[in-house]
Write a protein that binds this DNA or RNA. Structure first.
Lengths: 223, 223
DNA sequence: ATGGCCGGATACATCGGAGGTATCAGGGAG
DNA sequence: CTCCCTGATACCTCCGATGTATCCGGCCAT
């Protein structure tokens, strides 16, 4: 195994074992390199790799720190990975989302409070009559994220966020705007919100399923 | 933005745009460094980072290649990230698995063939009367993986694989062996398999839910 | 006494070059 | 024709030096 890979494993070990805790500062490059028995350059490669997946946070002139290790932060790296996938696997990602999102929506129906519901309503109303693709993507993302956050499971939230990141979503919406599907999709958003207001978990789950299935169906016909 | 981060983005861009396809070979370090306008050392940091998350595959003496970009390969990186999480978020990961696994099991009930069913049976039978923790973990992993693979969705499969990786699972099993819960858990495995043999999607889904919920419940009492 | 400015110390960022090692392909011996 | 050796290639590792961002303590003006 290469020295850099060893260094990655050792740093990972230090964190997992608890020797380094979230927010802790690592020894400076030269010291850590000496401690682990490799050159500064090789160590830097290890640190850079761990920083890409948000395990470490390097600040020039200051030092290198262990991040908070929040699920949200760590799963951000997932969206980086998802970006690499091409059209042929988008359907598989969507199928996973079709499983997770209805469940999350149902969970949210029991936990979401009136303030959050009002915020979602306001957000839907704020969308103009002829929104741009960017506005649609942002609105869509915000709407679903708002609901999933109310599910109370941050891992679930981050996972869904990563799975259908901006890139994927934009691709879908860009196609949808060419049809008359926009209004129907927005209508589905309102129905999901209505179910949540009624605290009707089953209705919420079903509308969420319908919502994603309709996207899935449309996508299947165009690919 | 740092030159290394720029390089990461540029290489990512080359792959996403299609200029570099899966299996393609990158220009050699010195050429690529010149092309992107940075030093070899900095480029190496970028390559190493992308290699950690399985986007690139470097082979000494040969060259650097773009991996197959299979979902399975890319989501392997997820398990690396999951390893960093501590006990307090294990429950959240398990909650996600509780959503995904029953759905995957139900999907598998329609698709799994007799050979696969027989293989799973044989595997359950192969486990001795007093298995070690390592054997239990390996068996558990194989059993669930075998089922989820039959769901036909490789993204789903890799995701579940990553979510409850060896580390997490080992932690759970290590606790379970201290109770008498082992035989009950193995019994649940057999019931899941039986439902699959009956092609009973709802029974399969329910047993899978029960199976994970029981782990969840046990975990909740001990944490 | 307080507030802002400035310079030193610290730590990461980037670079260029040198020597090492693994891999592969092609030529020569058997 | 097969096997082994050798050279070319490309990544691996290291070193030392310079650039740059950040932090902090002291100095000066108000």
């Amino acid at each position: 195994m290469a020295v850099t890979d060893e260094a990655i494993e050792k740093i990972k070990g230090m964190i997992v074992s608890g020797a380094l805790r979230p927010g802790d500062r690592l020894p400076k490059e030269s010291e850590l390199a000496a401690e682990l028995g490799l050159s500064r350059n090789s160590l830097r490669e290890a640190v850079r790799a761990l920083s890409l997946i948000r395990i470490l946070d390097v600040r020039q002139g200051d030092g290198t720190y262990v991040t908070s290790l929040d699920p949200q932060l760590l799963l951000e790296a997932l969206s980086f990975v998802v970006d690499f996938h091409r059209d042929d696997t988008v359907l598989e990602f969507l199928a996973v989302r079709r499983i997770l999102e209805p469940a999350a929506t149902a969970m949210a129906s029991a936990l979401i409070d009136d303030d959050q519901l009002d915020a979602l309503s306001a957000q839907l109303d704020a969308l103009g009559p002829a929104p741009s693709v960017e506005e649609l993507v942002a609105c869509d993302l915000e709407f679903h994220r708002g609901i999933v956050q109310a599910s109370g499971n941050s891992v679930l939230c981050s996972l869904l966020d990563g799975l259908s990141g901006p890139t994927t979503r934009a691709r879908v919406w860009r196609g949808l705007t060419q049809e008359d599907a926009v209004s129907r999709t927005l209508h589905e958003h309102r129905m999901i919100l209505g179910s949540l207001r009624d605290r009707d978990a089953e209705a919420a789950r079903s509308w969420a399923t319908v919502h994603i299935a309709s996207v899935e169906q449309w996508l299947r016909t165009t690919l």
